[in-house]
């Protein structure tokens, strides 16, 4: 059984890749899924298993653009898991990249970061059109 996730993105769901060996979880795109519970349950489940069973560091790489309410909640659940692990001494971090033409996305990432004490970088990037 594989420990990795590879969920292709769609117009309303982000592309998701989870690599157990590399300790990396990546998400890109818009997120307003019809069934956000089903989608994010896989991600939250993977993260919980990783934090429970693995010992190496975890890096979350996000390039999320639009999030609907349930996706916002799911992301906050994931950050809560990371925060808990961080307080337990685990090495976790988040890198949130956003299109530098859309600073508002960066501001929203900052809102997420507010309650987190682990390493949480918010980086503008130049997107070629």
């Amino acid at each position: 059984m594989t420990h990795d996730l590879n969920i292709p993105g769609s117009q309303s769901t982000p592309a998701i890749q989870a690599d157990w060996q590399a300790g990396s979880l990546c998400m890109q795109g818009d997120s307003y899924p019809e069934n956000s519970y089903e989608l994010f349950n896989q991600v939250i489940g993977w993260t919980e298993r990783f934090l429970a069973d693995a010992t190496h560091p975890l890096t979350l790489q996000l390039e999320l653009v639009y999030l609907n309410t349930s996706s916002v909640k799911a992301m906050m659940d994931i950050f809560d898991l990371l925060e808990e692990a961080h307080l337990d001494g685990r090495e976790v971090r988040v890198i949130w990249r956003f299109d530098d033409r859309n600073e508002r996305i960066g501001e929203l990432a900052e809102e997420f970061r507010e309650d987190c004490t682990f390493d949480f970088a918010i980086t503008p990037m130049r997107v070629s059109v």
């Binding site: 309410t69 916002v72 929203l108 809102e111």
Partner: peptide, 20 residues
């Protein structure tokens, strides 16, 4: 507090979408 935060962030996303 968490609920308020979620609502606040979600509202901002929605405003963003409206502008888009």
């Amino acid at each position: 507090r968490r609920q308020r935060k979620i609502t606040h962030i979600a509202d901002r996303y929605q405003a963003l979408l409206g502008e888009r």
